[in-house]
Nucleic acid binder design. Structure first.
Lengths: 341, 341
DNA sequence: TTGAAAGCGATACCAG
DNA sequence: CTGGTATCGCTTTCAA
């Protein structure tokens, strides 16, 4: 069953119809060189009449580009990644570029993603969200001359947008300290996570620094790693909440994890915020509905600006290599003064 | 500032390196015709050695196809759409097709989307999620010979996957009736919504039918339209909850709207489920965490199967035109017997 | 200002 | 089984 090719009209049909050469049609199409007014009018009429649309594929082959931007997202399951993606979609929609979505859920798929996309004929540029490519992959991208921008992840050789995770971790922890909490636990991602080497470590550092500044001793039993999943965080929180000296506050490295903590508290009959304060990170869409106190980072904006940055690199403009987006503490209903304060 | 073209190797380089003709290289590339074992080995070695990757653009021009599937999603803001998208991503990842993401947030963008994507050189096929193209658009797709599959939306001329929304509305409403509720309100989308003409209307019909079957009189003040947004639903619910005779149960046409209802109830100090039962629709990821009773529809599966269906159409196989996916009531913590029952 | 023709990098027909 | 070559539809020199 051969797909019958659509009887689409080509540039030469237009040329014939207008009684000019194809080159001229191409010229009026791209508005490049000067074409005599009467000629241009004739050509434009022909284009309209024939409902001609130039073939992007052919144009791209000729131009050596694809007009596609690849957006690599690990875990489309993560709400924050989705919001970032949406920002990117928005920026790209206003450009001539199509957006090829590449979801990467496993380490293996991640490698293949770069292998597949990391050459110049699938995409003209790459936007990588919440993920840090390995040096080898960066080198490959460089060899293929594919511009790449990182959103929520840093690499010295690549333009990127990040937040100050150390400051964020400190912000959250200090908030709890100011509420009188002393027994403050932390739930982060697995530090060995190949996808996000930096961010959790930095938030941990901020947490530790805030504690240190306040003269509060670190308890290693209070620092736990899970994954981004709610379920994992719930279980980890359960362990924390069953500790002989259970924490009065938990800072989770993401809102999703904080939601897991909330679940665990509910299951244990521990009242939030009276008996337990919880702070998240990100301020995802449902955070307000869970009443979650959290460190807000501009998720949507990061995606949008990341895409814009990539677009300007693609356009040949020089751009700053690194942008740090602001962080902000949003107080809601899951934090309160420590019990007995 | 001209982008320096990457010194990429072409098929003829490989041919030269292997001491064969380009046609032969093309053959081993596509595994089509028979190539002598030693020759193929030589070519494969050359490919490996030169790190050769065929240009997709060139191949596409030659083949007259793009190896791209366009996925059109209205409101990437909607959690259920995201889950569907993920299903599609999953299915497409296992195929040679790239996925071009087209988000459509406004009626205007929607028209442009079909205009842009509705010709054969941007995508080989279209997967349209939670949206129904107009007849004119369908015709355009047909003329351009672009196969199109609808997920969560029906059109007589297009293969599609749907759920039985009438049955779903009935399922939810009957559940409430069985719990002894008589004053049951309904919050749906705007019926005039150009994006989803069918689904809300059908759920309303199911709601009405269940009421009718149980001999409960319809109150028009109990039937409200909002939009998909939480915020709108919250406000609509507020109106409902301030009615002189306020409902003891609310059925919302989506989980997001149900979440808005929950918010409104909390704000009014109305306890759920003691004083108010709430049922949603979809069973999105956070539904379990909100303890939301809901009508589950297989969101992820719908995306996956939709993509698979499209893939098989693209592969030239005939497929059933319409698939109805099953619905299931999931009881959680937001429904209970009516007060005083 | 305009047109003829040479690419862009693959595929596939047609000989050999 | 293999190689030469026309072809896909557009852009862009190079001359006229």
């Amino acid at each position: 069953m051969e797909p019958i090719p659509a009887p689409s009209i080509r540039i030469r049909d237009v040329a014939a119809h207008a009684g000019v050469g194809v080159a001229t049609v191409s010229r009026v199409l791209n508005g490049r060189a000067h074409v005599a007014e009467p000629t241009r009018l004739r050509v434009e009429a022909a284009i309209k009449e024939l409902e001609y649309r130039p073939s992007t594929v052919a144009r791209n082959l000729s131009l050596g580009r694809t007009l596609v931007v690849g957006v690599v997202v690990p875990f489309l399951t993560s709400p924050s990644a989705v919001v970032r993606l949406r920002g990117a979609v928005e920026a790209l929609a206003a450009s001539p570029y199509d957006l090829a979505l590449i979801d990467v859920e496993t380490e293996d798929r991640r490698r293949r993603a770069f292998d597949v996309i990391g050459r110049p004929d699938r995409a003209d540029g790459l936007l990588v969200i919440s993920m840090i490519p390995e040096d080898e992959e960066v080198a490959q991208l460089g060899r293929a001359r594919i511009p790449c921008v990182l959103v929520d992840g840093a690499h010295s050789a690549l333009p990127h947008l990040v937040v100050d995770d150390v400051a964020g971790g400190e912000l959250a922890t200090r908030h709890l300290i100011e509420l009188g909490h002393r027994r403050i636990a932390f739930i982060g991602d697995k530090p060995s996570d190949p996808f996000r080497p930096g961010s959790t470590r930095d938030r941990t550092a901020g947490y530790e620094r805030a504690l240190h500044t306040a003269g509060i001793e670190l308890r290693h039993s209070y620092i736990r790693a899970g994954t981004q999943s709610i379920e994992q965080a719930r279980q980890t929180a359960l362990v924390l909440l069953r500790l002989p000296q259970r924490p009065t506050a938990i800072f989770a490295a993401s809102d999703l994890q904080a939601l897991g903590v909330l679940e665990a508290a509910a299951a244990e009959g521990i009242r939030v915020p009276e008996e337990l304060s919880v702070v998240g990170f990100d301020d995802i869409e449902i955070a307000p509905f869970a009443g979650l106190t959290t460190v807000r980072q501009p998720l949507h904006e990061s995606g949008r600006r990341g895409a814009e940055l990539l677009l300007s690199v693609l356009g040949g403009e020089l751009e700053p290599m690194s942008v740090t987006l602001p962080l902000e503490l949003v107080e809601r209903r899951t934090t309160a003064p420590a019990p007995g304060v």
